[in-house]
Design a protein around this nucleic acid. Structure first.
Lengths: 332, 332
DNA sequence: GCCAATAATGGCAGCGCTGCCATTTTCTTT
DNA sequence: AAAGAAAATGGCAGCGCTGCCATTATTGGC
């Protein structure tokens, strides 16, 4: 069933072939400790000749020091997470760390199971999205003793390291921007907020800000399932059918916002004069549309990058706020 | 520097606590071999009490059977690869396999280095994109004895397993479709073809088909760097500046095609009467645009899914053609 | 040319588990 | 109730490496 590796060359065989001891080979290969140039050449020649590939499993077990970094992410469809992985991956590869991942589908129970499975690999760090975890997950992570990095959310208490930005602040600023532009009849189109708690935080901060300025949310349309362009289109269609006099609509993210934008294009709804659209994420595609999308650009790649750097450097517990940038665009 | 795990509970400690032998604990935990219900309860209680998490590193070393699956992918920005990972990840998680990955940036040299690094983890399988690998990579993979899965391309000779579809066929069918629709002045907008060899294969098959029907490619604009919506927009702008009388443009993928589409929207170029647009990939977003994008839908998630299933089942060497689907859309 | 440093090197236990084999216990069967 | 089969269990080597310590070769200083 499982795969068995065939006759692999071992360090001991290399040592024999090179006529040196095992520890010497180990030292040469890791460039650690001292050895003569002559020895190094002999060893490297033997490595080359035998096609030796070190066994990191054995090495990790022996040193009880891991260079695995585990990612437990909610989704791979939402471009946010591939972006984070991308940022982290570059740093990890440079430092000879290895990324492993699994996908929770925004299911906290699954997150707990997968986190447990990951810990079995004794990673140097576990990277998780946000702060909302089951009690079991938290307990396990804490007990593991490995570094914990919570990503893309700063509204809560960090377990160890946290890298990202405040979703609540993003929601607040989005609302403030729309209000400043003079919109008063504002609606919302979003996807499943119970699962995507970060979107939920943006939304609630958005609503609070509107309320504080006497312009409470006029209407909302929340679609089941994941965010998508089609859901954004559909959501706006439904919202406008119910509440046609909206001046602006806030979307749970750019995918959804683009759907809304396309709906307006298709129906001849003038943007932003007739209806303003505001998104979240700052996807590249939103800058290439005929009218650049008004949105908030989040530092997704940087989040992964910084998170990986902190892990590699074994930095002390801290919270790193990378902020975000409001892009005025032309749709609001 | 590297992380050291603190006082972790070992199997031996669980055995002591439960008052049984190590092998018994091992059997219970893997549900393998025979043991009494009473013993199982005692063991599980001890596991619970001590918060024992098995060490897969040690287990893998001892059994010399790996449940790691390595992905060496060109990019995480191109949605294709997250999609493949997503498809594979579901199957792998179900079967208690663990996915590890690294990103080559379409650089064959980096691919070789990263493949070597991955083999050090003695994975059960290595998944790579396409058939174009350096001699060194091929030699290494072959020698490793682990399963090799080549993804998303079938135009070449498989090393072991291959899952995907023919990019050449996709290029051919795209050309045939445009010709059938009556377009004769056809251009191309693409990204760096030397790096993305699959896009290169589509393009050359596309051109050959055009040539065979006496409608050779009228012009082309190839942009350096990765594919993106903005590059698609820019590419079409340049192409039309040079060759304004084109009837249709084939794009290297949907991202690029969307850029072209947006360019037309912005410039008031009527689609498809004035200019037809054809993409590749069948992204969801292309179905939510005011005019659905004419494109080819590729089975990306299924590719990952099937690849993982073959690995898990330890299937014999084979090539699995998942085909693709031409979506007529409204832009061509 | 002698001795103390210092550089190189080898030996081997042990990381935490699994696989094999031997042993003990429990069931069946006659 | 005895014998044989089957189930349950424990012991321990060893997976391939690293880390520590002991040992041996070099080097420099006077």
């Amino acid at each position: 069933m499982e795969f068995k590796h065939q006759a692999t060359v071992t360090l001991a065989e290399v040592a024999d072939a090179a006529g040196v001891g095992e520890s010497t080979v180990s030292r040469v290969l890791r460039n650690h400790g001292s050895f003569s140039g002559k020895t190094r050449d002999r060893v490297m020649a033997a490595v080359e000749r035998l096609g030796y590939v070190p066994n990191r499993i054995a090495g990790t077990l022996a040193s009880t020091a891991s260079r695995l970094v585990a990612f437990v992410i909610p989704s791979l469809s939402n471009i946010v997470f591939p972006d984070v992985l991308r940022g982290a991956s570059a740093v990890l590869e440079e430092n000879r760390y290895q990324a492993v991942f699994s996908v929770t589908d925004y299911d906290p129970g699954k997150e707990e199971a997968l986190a447990a499975a990951m810990l079995a690999w004794r990673p140097a760090a576990v990277m998780v999205a946000g702060y909302e975890h089951t009690e079991g997950t938290v307990k396990m992570l804490r007990a593991s003793g490995c570094r914990i990095v919570e990503l893309l959310d700063l509204d809560g208490d960090a377990l160890d390291l946290a890298v990202g930005f405040s979703n609540r602040a993003a929601g607040r600023e989005s609302a403030a921007f729309l209000l400043k532009r003079g919109y008063r009849r504002i609606g919302y189109v979003g996807h499943d907020l119970n699962r995507d708690t970060r979107a939920g935080k943006r939304f609630s901060a958005f609503c609070e800000t509107l309320g504080a300025h006497d312009a409470p949310l006029a209407d909302r349309e929340i679609l089941a399932g994941a965010s998508s362009v089609e859901n954004g289109r559909l959501g706006l269609e439904r919202l406008l059918a119910r509440t046609p006099d909206l001046g602006a609509v806030y979307f749970s993210n750019d995918d959804m916002a683009l759907g809304g934008y396309f709906h307006c294009l298709a129906r001849g709804i003038a943007i932003p004069s007739q209806l303003a659209i505001f998104g979240y994420n700052g996807l590249d595609i939103g800058r290439a549309t005929p009218q650049p999308l008004s949105t908030i650009r989040t530092p997704r790649v940087a989040t992964g990058h910084v998170a990986a750097q902190l892990v590699v450097a074994n930095a002390p517990p801290q919270v790193v706020d990378l902020g975000f940038e409001l892009i005025e665009g032309a749709t609001a």
